[in-house]
């Protein structure tokens, strides 16, 4: 899984690379490409003929409401048929959605790595959280390289199998925190103060499915379930407006797909 994640991460690094000075451009490009790619997946995995027929029927019933608007019976009947045919349409849309969903999840995970959390600002504290499989080791410690100050001893929350620290970066850079428990050492990247687009991995995890959604760092092994840095959320600026990246992705991917559905001869 790690190598799969690594390959995917490198691919997205390459896509985002030209947009280091304008991160929003990368988001727009990837969103648009996703929209088009998903359109093609939708075309390949759906019953296009049935969807076309269903959409035609919906249009026909809508037109019937205009053509026979003096007849309340026809208007009500057509209204019912629109709703009924709509359900049929949704049924036809389920299969392609099943195919599209996992792909989109992987893409969104990569986008979240770049547009979700913001790096910790020098001088501002962040919380580091470690979650263990069992009870938290009494001697668990967190060590930091020069430039990072671990301000608190471990705060243990036994019922959650969790230990927390407050750390404060003094300067910008990519640092490696070092957590020691039961004789083993675990690393966790901490990103401080970097401007522009760049990967900011919040969690380093163990377990195959968790790795799928947290691809930024090598998987953990041993006693630890996850180490997490509570970064602040990133403020993405798009043409001067602060917009959450998920909203941008949603709108741009849909607009791109709808704009090109005629060219790609796809019924959606």
């Amino acid at each position: 899984m790690w190598y799969f994640n690594l390959a995917l991460t490198r691919l997205f690094d390459a896509l985002a690379w030209p947009f280091q000075r304008w991160p929003a451009g990368g988001l727009l490009l990837i969103s648009a490409l996703t929209g088009v790619a998903m359109l093609l997946v939708f075309k390949a995995t759906s019953n296009q003929r049935a969807i076309r027929r269903t959409r035609d029927l919906i249009r026909a019933h809508l037109l019937a409401m205009r053509l026979f608007r003096d007849d309340a019976r026809v208007v009500v009947e057509s209204q019912k048929k629109v709703l009924r045919t709509n359900l049929t349409y949704l049924r036809y849309a389920v299969v392609p959605i099943v195919f599209i969903l996992p792909i989109v999840v992987l893409i969104m995970v990569q986008l979240d790595l770049r547009y979700g959390p913001a790096p910790a600002q020098p001088g501002e504290a962040v919380v580091v959280k470690a979650i263990f499989n069992g009870a938290v080791d009494d001697d668990v410690t967190l060590a930091a390289p020069p430039g990072i100050v671990v301000e608190t001893p471990a705060l243990r929350i036994p019922y959650k199998h969790e230990a927390d620290w407050r750390v404060r970066p003094a300067k910008a850079g990519r640092f490696e925190l070092s957590l020691k428990s039961k004789g083993a050492t675990y690393g966790k990247e901490l990103v401080a103060g970097e401007a522009g687009v760049g990967r900011v991995s919040s969690r380093r995890v163990s377990g195959i499915w968790s790795q799928l959604t947290n691809p930024g760092e090598r998987p953990l092994s041993g006693d630890l379930v996850a180490i997490e840095v509570k970064y602040p959320s990133r403020q993405n600026k798009l043409f001067g407006l602060g917009v959450h990246w998920v909203l941008t992705f949603f709108v741009v991917s849909l607009v791109a797909a709808f704009a090109l559905k005629g060219v790609l001869k796809t019924e959606v």
Binding site: M38, I58, A93, I103, L254
Partner: peptide, 16 residues
């Protein structure tokens, strides 16, 4: 969030 696939279905159904 389920991406463009569900988006297509939701948008089309909504407009209908």
């Amino acid at each position: 969030y389920v991406g463009p696939g569900a988006g297509f279905a939701v948008v089309t159904s909504f407009f209908a």
